[in-house]
Simulated assay, not measured.
Amino acid sequence: MMNQKSPSIKKFTGYHATMIIVAFFAVVVSVNLVMAQFALSTFSGTVVDNSYVASQKYNQWLEQARNQQAHGWTVSPAVRKTGKASIVVTDIDSAALQGATLSAVAEHPVGRTDPFALDFVQTEAGDYVSVQPLPEGRWKLKIIITQDDKNMRVVRDIW
């Protein structure tokens, strides 16, 4: 008869259960801390600086929006052309808006860099291209379009 050793089977003890539970919660807490750090570093939580003042201006903002709609201007999504922002603006008849003045403030959507100004020049009929280059990445453009006594404010994202 051969002498065979039986394989050694380790018992599952309370120590093993405790270590599994501790490891599980260590992972959960670590992930929560990392995600909280990301959340706090990418969004300030501020939508408006002063909600009371914003509520007082609400009706004025609605009136401005109605006036802008009455112009009938259409502003295309902002696109990149050779490292610069490009926007097409048309009038109420879908014809190119000629001779308008465009300016914008470019803001990083999560505030990683300071906002900066962009000026636009008309290159083709209704096509306006920024004079200054726009750095790579996602930007929010707060655009002001002025022609004669009419003006329009729009916000466009550009990637």
Rank of each mutant, 00 (worst) to 15 (best):
A117V: 12
V29M: 10
N67V: 11
N67P: 00
A96S: 13
F25G: 00
K140M: 11
K57G: 02
S94M: 09
D93G: 00
V31D: 07
S30Q: 03
V110K: 05
L102H: 06
P77F: 03
S30W: 11
S76N: 04
I145G: 02
T42D: 06
A125Y: 06
D149M: 09
P109S: 08
D119A: 15
I21K: 13
R112E: 15
S30K: 04
N50D: 13
A125I: 01
I20A: 13
N32G: 15
D119H: 11
K57A: 06
G126V: 04
Q122S: 03
V75R: 00
T42A: 10
N151Q: 06
S55T: 05
V75L: 02
D149C: 01
D119T: 13
M35W: 10
H108F: 10
Y15S: 12
S44A: 09
H16L: 04
A85T: 01
T46F: 09
A17M: 06
S30N: 13
A70E: 15
F38Y: 15
L97W: 01
S51E: 14
D127C: 03
S130H: 09
L40D: 12
S94H: 15
Y15R: 12
A125G: 15
A17I: 11
E136G: 01
Q64P: 00
F38Q: 15
D93A: 10
D49I: 06
H16S: 07
P115Q: 07
D114V: 07
L33W: 11
S103P: 03
R153H: 14
L97P: 07
F38G: 08
A117I: 09
Y128W: 04
T46V: 15
A96Y: 11
T46N: 11
R138F: 10
S44Y: 03
L134V: 06
S103C: 02
D49N: 14
A85Q: 00
G126H: 01
V27I: 14
V105R: 07
P109A: 12
F120W: 06
A125W: 05
A70W: 08
A36E: 12
G83Q: 05
P135Q: 07
V105L: 10
N50S: 10
A78R: 00
S51T: 12
I92V: 14
Y15T: 09
G137S: 05
A65N: 13
V28W: 08
V29P: 00
S76R: 01
N59Q: 15
G111L: 08
E107C: 09
F116H: 04
H108I: 03
V88G: 00
P135A: 01
V131T: 10
V29E: 05
K81W: 02
Q69S: 11
L33I: 11
S103W: 15
V79E: 11
A96P: 06
H71I: 07
P133W: 05
V47M: 11
Q37P: 03
V121Y: 08
G83M: 03
A65E: 14
E136M: 02
T146M: 03
T42I: 07
V47E: 11
A104P: 04
Q147F: 02
K84W: 04
A106N: 03
G72C: 00
E107K: 15
L141M: 10
D93I: 03
S44M: 05
G83K: 02
